[in-house]
């Protein structure tokens, strides 16, 4: 096995971020181990998304360091993050609805023949293969994404991460606005990522969606990390108490 569990993959140290006069992150430490699934939970405005956007290159930290596989790294664009193997699946921002499934999966990394002409055959076959790996059977790689269900769309975005051999997949509220059946579908996709040994950060404010699949939970509130607990040391009730308490604590 090339990937070994238990070794540190990402370490974010003392991350600070201001948006104008808003002090969004106040010295957060955060780490993810190889093959581990971390549930990042907290109320709206707790700083979860900001932290993750720094890791995926959308924002830059005003202060703090990021280490990836032991190396100090500077992630100044989404492109940098992808080069490291960090793939982010945003709620509604991951896919172009009018483009085909295959064109979405290979967006920005199209397989080409000579002179930049897209190799459609490779693109279509690889897309179907990546989806099948997730257990997702779709009629054709040429369907526009807008014709898919919410769960299937998340599947397409996750298939993309899987295909490009991501080391860390960040799922930003992947279960928001999905039906119960679709949520189960998405959780199954995440389990597939786990089986492949890929680290996952699962951001949600629905504790129960994260509880099934995560091994560790990080609770954030008002720009700070309030708790960092292993699943075996806690319970959903305790976690939800933590979220509520830390949101109201002074």
């Amino acid at each position: 096995m090339e990937r070994q569990n238990g070794e540190l993959l990402v370490r974010m140290v003392n991350i600070h971020k201001w948006f104008g006069r808003v002090y969004a992150l106040r010295g957060v430490d955060f780490e993810v181990y190889r093959g581990e699934t971390v549930g990042l939970i907290g109320d709206n405005g707790a700083g979860k998304s900001t932290l993750i956007k720094i890791l995926s290159g959308y924002h830059q930290a005003d202060q703090g360091e990021i280490y990836f596989e032991g190396q100090r790294v500077r992630i100044s664009s989404p492109r940098d993050a992808r080069k490291l193997g960090i793939e982010t699946v945003y709620q509604e921002q991951a896919l172009a609805p009018n483009l085909s499934i295959a064109r979405n999966i290979f967006m920005g990394r199209e397989p080409v023949r000579r002179w930049g002409i897209i190799d459609r055959k490779v693109m279509n076959e690889e897309s179907m293969k990546a989806l099948a790996n997730l257990g997702l059977r779709l009629r054709s790689p040429d369907l526009p994404v807008v014709t898919l269900s919410g769960g299937e769309r998340q599947g397409v975005a996750i298939a993309r991460a899987l295909h490009f051999k991501a080391k860390l997949v960040i799922l930003d509220e992947p279960t928001v606005a999905l039906s119960v059946k679709e949520v189960e579908e998405v959780l199954e996709f995440v389990r597939q990522l786990q089986r492949e040994g890929i680290s996952v950060i699962f951001i949600t404010h629905n504790l129960y969606h994260a509880y099934d699949i995560a091994e560790r939970f990080v609770v954030m509130a008002r720009g700070k990390k309030m708790a960092d607990v292993k699943k075996k040391d806690t319970s959903p009730e305790e976690l939800s108490q933590l979220v509520i308490k830390s949101a109201f604590a002074e």
Binding site: R82, Y90, Q93, L99, F106, E110
Partner: peptide, 24 residues
């Protein structure tokens, strides 16, 4: 329709954030 740049054009117009996140 056949060049990779075309796919970037569509992606940019369809969902700029997604295109950006994919490194375009």
């Amino acid at each position: 329709h056949y060049h990779r740049f075309g796919n970037w054009i569509y992606a940019t117009g369809d969902n700029r954030d997604a295109a950006r996140a994919m490194g375009i």
